[in-house]
Amino acid sequence: MSIQNRFSKFHDKIKLGREDDAYREARAKDNSILDEIKAEFRSAGYPIIETFIQGSLSTYTGIKHPVDDFDIDRAVVIDADNAPDNPVELKKLVLKVLEKRGFKNARVKKPCVTADYINLSLHIDIVVYRKGGEQYELAVGKLNSNEQNREWSPSEPKKLIEHINNSSLFIGSADLKIKQFKRLVRYFKRWRDEKFGQAIGKKVFSIGLTLMLKEQFRPAIDNNGKVDDLQSLRDTVGAIMASNYFHWAGDNKYKVNVYLPVQPYINVFENSSIDTGTQLYNKFKLLLTKLDQALEEDSLKKQCEILQGLFGNDFEVPEKEQSNNAGKVAYSNAGVVGTSQGA
């Protein structure tokens, strides 16, 4: 069994998609909450014209967190011609629905309305946009924000999703490569959850990691078409470290900067502390060292031990050096695959 096979099993353990069983209840809640928000907006005279999922579920990069809640990032969109000047008005409507549905800690944050469901491991972020033509504008502002701190801010949420999902620049096996990229995003997130304390970990934003990975992704597929996630991880981390995301802040400290590639082109880590940047830099460096060690290691068991040290117990270590695979046939998950074969 190859190290790639081990990565594949690890990935199967940590991945989370909207259709997964583990997510079923959260999805049901999301659907029913969305129905109520739609009704609330309609009766207030702001009919919702579009709704979509944002975040990791839209880019197929979600992972199960061993402790924290499931996240739902739901976007609702109203017609710009019909929108109130004050965007907070709409966020209040969302807040009202969430409070009525028994969420705790429901509050209006600057970019969204956020809440936790009481009886379910579910954290929900709802963002509101207005749309005129093709332009989306985000409802920005807190409950008590004055006129200067609330606005309809130009935004490109769908372009961001497209950017992350885009595989058109890969030459050959584009599907394999984009899937490898997304597995790497999941590995990175799990590494972050394992290696950072909860407080700092929450500040190492998933979107920041995802964008760095997307920009520096180095696919690794051998000439027989076999993917190699370990090599790709190492090469991608190496490329991240060799680029200019980390700015020297003196005294062995770093500020991390990752810019959105779409409107509003802001630095994702604009408000992050030097401590966050420094920890991220140092842990990336250590990650690179460990990945190099894993690559140089001949023993599969030792390789897995190193990787378990990085990604936690979900990355399994075989009991023996060469696990006996006899009788353990792993079949394809697909029922049918279209092929190009003929004769």
Partner: peptide, 22 residues
Amino acid sequence: CPESGARGLVSNMNFIEPNQVT
């Protein structure tokens, strides 16, 4: 399967990606 190591349904030697209208 080049990703998972499981038994795949298409040959890993193929030059055309699977699941296309060929």
